[in-house]
Simulated assay, not measured.
Amino acid sequence: MARIRICLLFVLMWTTAMGQAQQKLQVQGSSPNLHLVHTVAPKENWYSIGRIYNISPKEIAATNSIGMDKPLAIGQKLKIPLTDANFSQDGKKAADEVFVPLYHTVQEKEWMYRISTTHNKVSIENLEKWNAVTNDQLKAGMQLIVGYLKVKQSQSSLASQGSQKIQIATNPPAVVKETKQVEAITKETPPPAKDETVKTDPPKTETTKPEVKEEPKPIEVTPTSNSGPANHRGGFFKKQYAEKGNSNTGNAGIFRSTSGWNDGKYYALMNDVPVGTIVKVSFSSTNKSIYAKVLGQLPEMKESQGLIIRISDAAASELGVSLNKFYVEVKY
């Protein structure tokens, strides 16, 4: 009888471990509190669970507000925090680690921009590359990779479903570049931003050394596209624009994007307009227009109140915008 019980116990442990290893790991929560949920199996303890997810058992206990002196119960749910130690969205890991994909289930009316914002602002380019899907193809219920768990090959039961390398978008430096550009737009003082970059070139005296330590990064990642406003004659989507008699006027805002500066692919967020629609945004103060593809609805946040549309920072740059809110006419 005792042997039968032992055999049944081992079978239960094996099936539980296999089930956890094969099921897709779902990311829970939102930045900066992303986590996984683990169901305690027979014979597991703080240390064995820590080895599965490549994280200190102390961090698991702290995340769950439980003391490590308390024994775990079979079936107990534990939050497994995702930190720099065990979570990657940049393709970096130790030599003895592998990447295990982590997923997010797409909800109704959810698009890449919102998913990116919720998951550490991972670039939309990476989301599209990891999942071989574009924003236009998103559907509720889809399983979308939003990052990777880094686990030790020799310690984690999840390692069997891991890989040595992941694809990363080829333009990560642009994130730094656009951050500087958006700061210039939102501060309503784009000219000073240009002056600062010019001032860093001529000075060669010793007194400028402290500034040079901070300035090289934007200078190195600044291709010709960031030496001035974006100028793509309306943008990449101009040829796809087909006006159907719809128009709206009102205040517009800006959001950050790595797209548009080099390729002219401008994007917009707008309510009650189908995803994928190309809209024409005109700014009367400069008599300029750009053409942008709608990624989804305006995010439900304080900054969106009173806006009819938000456009990418590169698009705002081509319009010659110098304010964080500006009046536009939108046609589509």
Rank of each mutant, 00 (worst) to 15 (best):
G235I: 08
M142I: 03
V151H: 06
V212S: 12
E211H: 09
D201S: 10
T222A: 14
V122L: 07
K204L: 14
K180I: 15
K152A: 12
V182W: 00
I115L: 07
Q164W: 05
N231Q: 07
Q107T: 08
L138T: 05
T207Q: 09
K217H: 02
I185S: 01
T205H: 07
Y103H: 14
K129A: 12
V182L: 09
N126S: 06
E183R: 00
P229S: 14
V133P: 00
T197D: 10
L144D: 00
I219S: 13
E110A: 04
P223I: 09
P191Q: 11
S123V: 01
T207W: 12
E215H: 10
A174L: 03
M142W: 01
K121G: 06
L144I: 15
Q143H: 11
A169N: 15
A169W: 13
K109Y: 09
N131Q: 08
Y113T: 14
N135C: 12
G235D: 02
Q167I: 13
P229Q: 06
K199L: 15
H232M: 01
Y148W: 13
V106C: 03
K213I: 14
A159N: 08
N131G: 05
L149W: 04
I145Y: 05
G162P: 12
H119V: 03
K187P: 01
A132R: 14
E211P: 00
V182M: 11
V146S: 09
P172G: 00
V122Y: 00
P229G: 13
T134R: 09
Y148T: 09
V146M: 04
D136H: 03
I124W: 00
Q143P: 04
R114L: 12
K129F: 01
I168Y: 01
P192K: 06
I168H: 02
K217T: 14
T170P: 01
T208M: 10
T224Q: 12
G141Y: 03
L138S: 02
Q155E: 15
E220Q: 09
V182I: 14
